[in-house]
Design a protein around this nucleic acid. Structure first.
Lengths: 187, 187
DNA sequence: CCAGTGATGTCACTGACTGACATCACCGAT
DNA sequence: ATCGGTGATGTCAGTCAGTGACATCACTGG
C-alpha cells in the first residue's frame, strides 16, 4: 500500500469547494478542509499558499491558453483582433460539463469579498500576460495595456452573462456578442 | 486637556504609510502602527476594518465624485460620453500636491500583493457604481457594464501613466490622451 | 451635580500561516 | 539485499491578524 493516498491537492480542492458551498468561506476553517481530505492543516499550506488559493489553482492554465492564442494570431492581425482570438480561446476551458462547476464556484466567490479580491488579482495577472504578449508582437505599450484591459473586461462581462444564461448557449457566442456590443459602444 | 489626542484615524493613516514605506507591509505589525499613533491595536481595528484598509480610507469619495459627474452629464450624452465625464472628474482628486503622496502610496501598493488585491476591489466597486449610474440614466444593462469596465480601464491606465509622467503633466491630459488611444483601438 | 455617551484600553480567544524538526515508504545505486 | 537519499507528510511551537466582552473616564446635557 502506498504510504499516502495520492492526489492530496485534488482532495483538498474538492473538500474546500464542498465546505465553502455548505458553510460559507468564513464558516470553514483550514483544519476542517484538511480533515475532510485526510491530511493536516500544515499539508494544506504546502499545497496552497493560503485559504483562498485552493479555489484558484489551475487558473494559470487559462492565462497560458489565452497567451498562446494571442501568439498564434496572424502577424498582421490588429492588437484588438489578436486579443479577440485570445479571449475566444478561453471558451475551450468552460465548455461542456464545466458549466455547473463554474456556476457553483462563481456563487461561492461572489458571496465572499476575500475570494472576490483573489479573483480580481487573477484577472489582473491575465491582463499583464496579455499585455506582455502584445508587446512581444511589437504593439505600442500604451495600446497594448489598453487592449489587454479591454480584452479582460470583455472576458469578465461575457463570463458573467454566460453563467446566468440558458444552458445551451455556448460561451463563445456570448463573447462574440459582447465584442459586438463593445464596438458599437466606442463607435 | 482633552482626554485623547484628536484624529486618531489620521495619525494611524500616517503611521501606516510611513511604516509600510520604511519596512514594507509584511514587515510591519498593526501593533507597531498603533504604537506610533499613540493608541492600541484594538483601536486601530475600530477605525479600519483590517491592516490593508488603512491605505484606502477615502477612496469612496473618489467614486462618489465620479458618480456625481456621471449623473450631471447631459441627458442626451451617450453612455461613453457620460463615462468620460466621470473619469475626467477624477482629475480633481489628484491635482496639485497630491501627486507625491500618490506616488509613494502607489509604490507601496505595487510592492505588496495583498494591497494590490485591495486596490483592485476598490476599482471593481467603482465599476459597480458607474454601472449603476448608467442604469439610472436608462442605459441597457450590458452596455452599461461594458462602458463602466472600459471607463475604469481608462482610469487605471491613465493613472499609471500619470504617476510615471513628468511633474508638469496634468492627469486630465493623460486621461484625454488615453481616451483617444481607445477610440483608435476599437475603430 | 448626576446620568448617559463615546472613544479608548484591557484581556482572552480563535484561526491563518510559518519555521524547524522528525518520520518513513519508496527508489536507485552499490 | 541493503543502504543512503528523497519527498510528502506529521508534529509542535510560535507570531500575528482580527473579534467579543467588559471596564474606564472625560465630556455633555439636563
Amino acid at each position: 500500500m502506498a504510504r499516502w493516498e495520492p492526489d492530496a491537492a485534488g482532495r483538498l480542492r474538492e473538500a474546500a469547494m464542498a465546505l465553502y458551498a455548505e458553510r460559507g468561506y468564513d464558516g470553514t476553517t483550514v483544519a476542517e478542509i484538511a480533515d475532510r481530505a485526510g491530511v493536516t492543516a500544515r499539508t494544506f499550506f504546502r499545497h496552497f499558499a493560503d485559504k483562498r488559493e485552493v479555489l484558484f489553482a489551475g487558473s494559470e492554465l487559462l492565462g497560458q491558453d489565452m497567451v498562446a492564442a494571442l501568439a498564434a494570431a496572424p502577424a498582421d492581425a490588429s492588437p484588438m483582433e489578436a486579443v479577440t482570438a485570445a479571449v475566444l480561446a478561453s471558451a475551450e476551458f468552460f465548455d461542456g460539463t464545466r458549466r455547473d462547476y463554474s456556476r457553483r464556484r462563481a456563487a461561492v466567490i461572489a458571496s465572499t469579498p476575500e475570494l472576490r479580491e483573489r479573483e480580481l488579482i487573477k484577472m489582473a495577472s491575465m491582463t499583464t500576460s496579455l499585455t506582455e504578449g502584445l508587446l512581444a508582437r511589437g504593439v505600442d505599450p500604451d495600446v497594448a495595456a489598453l487592449a489587454a484591459e479591454t480584452g479582460v473586461a470583455v472576458f469578465r462581462v461575457s463570463f458573467e452573462r454566460w453563467i446566468t444564461a440558458p444552458d445551451d448557449v455556448p460561451i463563445a457566442d456570448v463573447i462574440r456578442s459582447t465584442l459586438k456590443t463593445l464596438s458599437a459602444l466606442t463607435a
